[in-house]
Structures are given as C-alpha cells and as structure tokens.
Design a protein around this nucleic acid. Structure first.
Lengths: 203, 203
DNA sequence: GTCTATAAAGCGATAGAC
DNA sequence: GTCTATCGCTTTATAGAC
C-alpha cells in the first residue's frame, strides 16, 4: 500500500542517514534499503530536500514516542520520598535515553545531529528543527518543574536549555567516538544534579 | 612560494566550509577562493579527505591562537579581589570568545562543528579531533583550577568536559539560527557560575 | 610547482510503460 | 503506485605541458 511504502522509505532514510550521514544519503542506496525504486521516492517526496524534511519530522515523532512511552516497572503508589526523588529519576531516565547503544537510539541521535548540523546551511530545515527543539526544552522544563514546583519559570527554561544543549554536545562526541557511553551518562547525571542545586538555591 | 599556496588553500578551505559546510565543499570553488587551480590542491593534499584533515588541524591551531593571544586592556597589577574574580572573568572571556559575530569566529565555529559532525562518518578525522578536544578540555580545566585551586582534578575535568560540550551544543544552535547570540552568552555565563558553585561545594 | 584540459564516475531527477 | 531505463549535469581526480 501507498502508506506502507512511504513509511518504509522514511524508516530507510533514518537508517541510511545514521549510517552515512545526510551528506552520504544517496537516492539509490535509500531505494535499495527501503526495497523500492528511486522513482518511487521522487513520486512520494518530490525531491531530496523533501525527504530530509519528512525524515526529520518522522524522527522527532518517533523520539517523542520512545521518550514518553516508557512502561514503568514500578507500581503506582508513591514510595515515601518527599523531595520528589521519583521525579528526579524520571528526569534522568528521560535524558539518559539518548545514551544507549541500541540501533534505534543511535539512529535517532545521529539523524537528529545531522539534520541540526545541516540546518546551518539549509534554512528550509530550520522551522521544523526549531519547533522540535522548543518542544523538547519545554518537556525538560516541565520535568524540572515537577521537582522544584516553586522555582520561577524562566530559571526552569534556562536549565532545560542548558541540559538539552549539553546533551546534543555530548551526543555528538559520543557518536564521533570521542566519549565513551558510560562517561556521557555520568556527565549527564551530574549536570542534572548541578542544575537542580541551582534551582533549589533560587527558590 | 609553495608554503604560501598551501596556506592560502587551507585558509580558503576554512572560508568555504564555513559558507557551504563540509558537505558543500567543492574543489572548484575552493580553487577559486584560494586563487589556484584544482590540480594544485591535489598536488598539495592528495585528495578531498586530505584537505579536510589538514583544515581541521589548521582551524584548531588558529583557535588556540585567538583563545590565548588576547591582548589585555588592563594593567598588570592585581586589583584586590581575593576570590580569584579576575580568574573567573578570564574563564568567561575565554569561553565567550566562541560567541561573537565576527567572520573569523563564525568561520572557526562553523568549520569546527562541521568537522566534528563529519567525524561520525569519517573515522580518519577522529584522531586529530580527539587531540584538539582534549587540549581544549585541559585548558578549561586549568582555568577552573586557577579559581578553585583545592578542588580535586577529576572534578575540574568533569566540569570542563561539560562546559566545552555545552559550548559545542549552544554553538550549533546559534549557527543554525535557533538561539540568539546574547542568549547563548547568558546561558554560558550561568553555566560557569553553576559549575563553580559545584566545585566550591566539593572542596 | 603550477596550469589547462579532460577523463571517469557519481548522482539527482524524469520519461514512459505497466 | 510502482518499475525500468536513462538523461544530463556535477564533481572528483589525473595527464601532460610549461
């Protein structure tokens, strides 16, 4: 079916971009990967830029899903820590999802980083990217707000901006082999702790 | 002379990469930019990958220079703040150098980000990149050590890793038009403050 | 060392059949 | 909607003269 093929192409694009980068994305390789002809790609997506745009959208939707979807192994009752310990773990979990050596995660991180980097030279990618980034920052700010409910909103936003930008920086280092996964995770956890201390001090 | 041309090509490469990205680097455009023929580029650098490698080296040397070279407008006498206030400003200055809307800075940041991103797919860039990153982290850790001399070295390193990774993340956002320069500078300054608080607490 | 000219390959995109 | 076949431009890289 039409929709199936479309999806197959987008999934293939995410894989190829993760493997070769945006700069390495070749229509023919994508066609093979998705099990279709090159012509069909153009039928569904007009041109190369169209594929990139839709792949970005596809990727960020998928990331939303694996970020929120996580089935908790815990039962629903609040254990007893009054300082929002669960909320802290929830925030850490959400951020650390980026640092797992699973194909889908690697794929998402790589493609995201690639598209972010490409946006420097391809302004038509900027709109979607900005929207997705803003949504991410907002989610993280909400999680921080759950931990420090009385902290002022601008401070929450600033912390969220730093944490997400840090994650992007660390992620690029990880993917380029400059930073071991475990170390990336440690640095992230400490960053969370450090930002929470700051928020505690402020409110 | 031979060396002049070589240098002209590298300078041209930095400019073209900043303008078009690694992905958009065309031998012919580079040749024009550097005022030489395409053949000469191959004579001096073997192939496309060779240019990228040497440009990365060129860029990070140049960044070293503008990071340390800064002629101070102040006189040499220590003003009187005992808590290393000058050292704090020195650290901030050093980090904020990345966020200036000057051609050379934009060029360096863009090219650096591009090469870092390319390294995900071109392993032969990783060695130089890792060396340059390590040197940068080390410099920042030293500046932090100047402010908190009694803090343990691993804590200094961790803070330096976070600050530099954050800078790379913010820089990409700035260059892709997702973050205004002034905001990037504010977030950086706060990040320095936050990390210094953490170090103060530890030692 | 440097250039001009060009071979050789790569790659995006479309025409036209089914 | 999907494929096969291919056009035609772009781009890397080299040959050979000076």
């Amino acid at each position: 079916m039409a929709t199936d093929r479309r999806r197959a192409i987008l999934e293939g694009a995410a894989r190829v971009i993760a493997r070769r980068g945006v700069r390495g994305l070749r229509m023919e390789e994508l066609a093979t990967e998705a099990g279709v002809s090159t012509a069909l790609i153009y039928y569904h997506f007009k041109d190369r830029a169209g594929i990139l745009r839709h792949t970005l959208e596809f990727i960020s939707d998928r990331a939303d899903r694996y970020t929120s979807d996580q089935g908790e192994g815990e039962d629903g009752s609040e254990g007893g820590s009054e300082d929002g310990d669960d909320a802290v773990r929830e925030l850490e979990r959400s951020l650390l999802l980026e640092f797992q050596d699973l194909p889908e995660v690697r794929e998402n991180s790589t493609a995201w980083g690639e598209l972010r980097a490409s946006a420097i030279f391809e302004p038509e990618l900027r709109g979607d990217l900005a929207r997705a980034t803003l949504a991410w920052i907002h989610d993280v700010a909400d999680l921080l707000g759950g931990i420090r409910p009385t902290a002022p909103a601008p401070a929450l936003t600033a912390s969220a901006e730093r944490l997400t930008a840090l994650l992007e920086g660390l992620s690029t280092r990880w993917l380029s082999g400059a930073l071991p996964l475990t170390h990336a995770r440690e640095l992230t956890k400490e960053a969370v702790a450090v930002e929470l201390e700051r928020l505690a001090k402020i409110d």
